[in-house]
Design a protein around this nucleic acid. Structure first.
Lengths: 208, 208
DNA sequence: GTTTAAATTAAACGTATGTTTAATTTTGTC
DNA sequence: GACAAAATTAAACATACGTTTAATTTAAAC
């Protein structure tokens, strides 16, 4: 007697998977419904239309990360550099775990098509950026960090993770994984990325 | 008597522009032909089909950058860190100037759709990565650089640029540009990105 | 058990897509 | 100017798409 499968969730799951693999336009409503084992009309019944499905997908897990990161701001037991480390680690974990959705959002953000999506995505994104910015700024004000270009440093952190996520085959080649292994599930590789980002941020932020 | 407009080139130009704005699937052959002012059948006449058009687009400017970068390797008048600087500057310029194509390639690389494109793209990409890797490695062997994670450092450099290119609106907000200005044409902003990357690489590579 | 709303279905609708065809025009060569 | 090849065109083709409809089944409430 397993829990009754929620068709709405099944559609969202299927859409998340297909959008990640084939893009928004490349995934037909028929494909999504077939993968979710529901009737073709259910997408429009539950979400109005295909765009509504996409927006629900973005909203579904939007605020999860932010709450965890925001707690870092108020934690007085950690030093500034430890907060930066913790933020980067948390962010890396999150993007690795939700690689498909991360890629989907990134692709949509880079297009002028469907611009009304951008607001939802920008809100989520800027929320996280704002937390990271505050962490770094307070480190600068406390005299522990160099006076760096905060916005671009954040772009470097997120950009590094995205760059690693973008091409699975490239990562396999560069890191020497066999063809049948998903490198993003490999704990060693994730640790390698994390410690690279940590060292990159540390060497850039800390005073000589 | 201006030069006769080469329709093949006009199609490629139109496709490059539309793919960048609306993605591969989001750009119809009809849209492309209308923008290029040619008949609908010309795409299939010149390129066989839509996928052939895309592949020609990738090949058109593939090797341009590599030759310039390769010369850096043999230039004995520059120090190792100067070569890294020059590589990063050249790469940034190139990606900024060809932003649309960069985004298009990035999106395609992140999808499992149309996997036969990946070989062409991977070849171009790995060629450039390989040059940068040699530059950094020889700096490490000469004892001038720390023994860093070369592959991920390159991912950081390219990822930073991509992250900046991905969202025009975000850059406008973060850097304070008005709505009607293209921030990627702004010489000051480009310089800001370049010097950030330079400092990031330098602080990470150079020994304490 | 009847009633009412929600959930689900198969089928159809209208349109947009990539591609092909067959006819026509342009261009270059002798 | 005649011929042949290349370039260009309008029209049609077959298919896939997102969406809607109208009928049916399921579930819940009384």
């Amino acid at each position: 007697m397993r829990a009754k499968p929620d068709k709405k969730e099944m559609i969202l799951d299927a859409a998340e998977q297909l959008f990640a693999q084939k893009g928004y336009e490349g995934s037909s409503v028929r494909d999504i419904c077939q993968l979710a084992n529901v009737n073709l009309a259910m997408v429009n019944y539950y979400f109005g239309n295909k765009e509504g499905l996409f927006e629900k997908l973005i909203e579904r897990k939007a605020s999860f990360l932010r709450e965890r990161l925001r707690k870092l701001l108020d934690d007085s037991s950690m030093s500034h550099i430890e907060k930066v480390d913790a933020f980067a680690d948390g962010y890396t974990d999150r993007l690795f775990e939700r690689r498909g959705l991360t890629l989907t959002i990134m692709r949509e953000m880079s297009m002028q098509q469907r611009c009304h999506f951008h607001e939802t995505m920008a809100e989520v994104f800027l929320g996280n950026v704002s937390i990271m910015r505050q962490i770094i700024r307070s480190g600068i004000e406390a005299g522990q960090f160099r006076d760096v270009d905060v916005e671009l440093l954040i772009a470097s952190m997120i950009g590094t993770i995205n760059q690693v996520l973008i091409n699975e085959n490239m990562v396999r080649k560069l890191a020497g994984f066999p063809e049948d292994v998903n490198p993003y599930d490999d704990e060693k590789f994730r640790h390698r990325v994390k410690s690279h980002i940590r060292q990159l941020l540390r060497s850039y932020l800390q005073k000589l």
